[in-house]
C-alpha cells in the first residue's frame, strides 16, 4: 500500500479491497457494513422516520475545531436532531481525488468513527469512488441518515405553531464555523485560530424532549447563517420577528474578523448551533437546559415573535435604531461545508 490514492483504488478490484481493509475497516466496524452486502439490512422501525442527506466539499478539509469527516457526520446528525428525530443509521460515500494522501484519509475516517460512536449512530453502508487528479479536490463526502421521530416533536421542522410572544433562542455564538473557514483561507491566518463550532447538537436536543409541547421550531443555521433561517421561517407568515442585536452572542475573535473583512456574523454558517423558537412560558427553561450542555453554554434569547411586521425580520440595532434582515444572496464564502 503506497501513501496516496491511485485511480486503481476505485477500480472495485483488489486495490479497492486493500483500501477498505487498511483505511476504513479499523474504524468503521458495524457488522452490517463489514458483511459487505449490497444493502445494509436493518430491523424495521415503528412510527415516523426522518431521512436526510448532505454532501460535504469544505475547503480546507482540516480547520480549527474540526475536519471534513467530523463535519459530515455532525451535519447529517444535526439535520435529524433538529427535525425532532433520534438518529439511528447512517450511510457514507467518499469521492477521492487521485493523489490524495492516505494519511489524511485515515485521519478523516478516524474522526468520523469517533463522532458517530460518541452519538450512538451506526454507520451501516459506505461507498468509495476515485476521480482523476484535477477532477475533484482531495475528498468529497456525502452522508445520509435515518432517524426515528420522537413523540411530540413532529411539528418542529415546520414551525406551524409559532405565534406572537414566542421566544427566539440560539444555543450559542453565531457564525463561528463560517469565520473559521474564512480565517483558514487567509494568506496569514490569525495567530490565535478562530474555532469552528462544528459539533453534534444531539445533546442539546435530547435535553429538550420533555418540553416538546413548548418547542415550536428548531433548525441548525448552516449555510446562510442565522439570518437566513429566520427569514425563511418568517416568509409569508402573519407574524414577524424582532431581533435584538446586542443580545446576539458573537465570539470576540469572530466579530473582530467580521469587521475587518466586511462580513456579517448573522450570515455566517454555524455547524453546531440550534435556533429554537419556544413558548414564552418555557423560553427561560429551554435556555437553562441548553446551558447544561458544553455546546450550549452561551445559549440565550435573541428576539421575539411579534404581530407587527408580518413576514419580516426586523432588528433593533446596537444603537436603538431598526433595520430589516433579509435573506443571504450570493455566496460570501465558497465551499464552507
Amino acid at each position: 500500500m503506497g501513501t496516496s490514492i491511485l485511480l486503481a483504488h476505485g477500480s472495485g478490484g483488489g486495490k479497492t479491497r486493500e483500501l477498505i481493509r487498511s483505511v476504513f475497516r479499523p474504524f468503521f466496524t458495524d457488522s452490517r457494513l463489514i458483511a459487505a452486502t449490497d444493502s445494509a439490512i436493518l430491523d424495521g422501525a415503528a412510527g415516523q422516520l426522518a431521512f436526510t442527506t448532505d454532501a460535504f466539499v469544505v475547503d480546507p478539509i482540516f480547520f480549527p475545531g474540526g475536519d471534513i469527516g467530523k463535519l459530515a457526520i455532525c451535519g447529517t446528525l444535526n439535520d435529524l436532531a433538529v427535525s425532532g428525530a433520534k438518529p439511528l443509521w447512517m450511510a457514507v460515500s467518499f469521492i477521492l481525488e487521485e493523489g490524495f494522501e492516505l494519511e489524511d484519509l485515515t485521519t478523516i475516517a478516524r474522526s468520523m468513527a469517533a463522532t458517530a460512536n460518541a452519538n450512538n449512530v451506526a454507520l451501516v453502508a459506505a461507498d468509495t469512488k476515485v476521480v482523476p487528479r484535477g477532477k475533484g479536490d482531495k475528498v468529497f463526502i456525502t452522508t445520509t441518515g435515518i432517524g426515528r421521530l420522537l413523540t411530540g416533536l413532529e411539528q418542529v421542522s415546520y414551525g406551524a405553531g409559532i405565534r406572537p410572544g414566542d421566544k427566539v433562542i440560539v444555543s450559542g455564538t453565531v457564525g463561528d464555523h463560517g469565520a473559521s473557514i474564512f480565517a483558514s483561507r487567509l494568506e496569514q491566518p490569525p495567530a490565535t485560530p478562530v474555532l469552528s463550532d462544528c459539533a453534534s447538537v444531539l445533546p442539546i436536543m435530547g435535553g429538550l424532549c420533555d418540553l416538546a409541547e413548548h418547542i415550536r421550531f428548531m433548525r441548525d443555521p448552516t449555510r446562510g447563517g442565522t439570518a437566513t433561517v429566520l427569514c425563511e421561517i418568517t416568509e409569508k407568515q402573519n407574524w414577524g420577528i424582532r431581533l435584538i442585536e446586542r443580545s446576539i452572542p458573537v465570539d470576540g475573535k469572530v466579530s473582530g474578523l467580521c469587521r475587518l473583512a466586511g462580513l456579517d456574523p448573522l450570515y455566517l454558517a454555524c455547524e453546531g448551533r440550534v435556533i429554537c423558537i419556544a413558548s414564552p412560558e418555557k423560553g427561560e427553561e429551554v435556555i437553562r437546559r441548553m446551558k447544561t450542555c458544553p455546546a450550549g453554554l452561551n445559549a440565550c434569547e435573541i428576539g421575539t415573535i411579534t404581530s407587527e411586521n408580518p413576514g419580516r425580520v426586523v432588528m433593533e440595532t446596537t444603537i436603538g435604531g431598526t433595520r430589516l434582515i433579509t435573506m443571504l444572496s450570493g455566496d460570501p464564502l465558497p465551499r464552507i461545508c
Partner: peptide, 12 residues
C-alpha cells in the same frame, strides 16, 4: 452607506 443602513441611523 453600509454603516448608516446597518446601524439603522435613518430610523433615528
Amino acid at each position: 452607506t453600509l454603516a448608516i443602513n446597518q446601524l439603522g441611523i435613518r430610523s433615528l
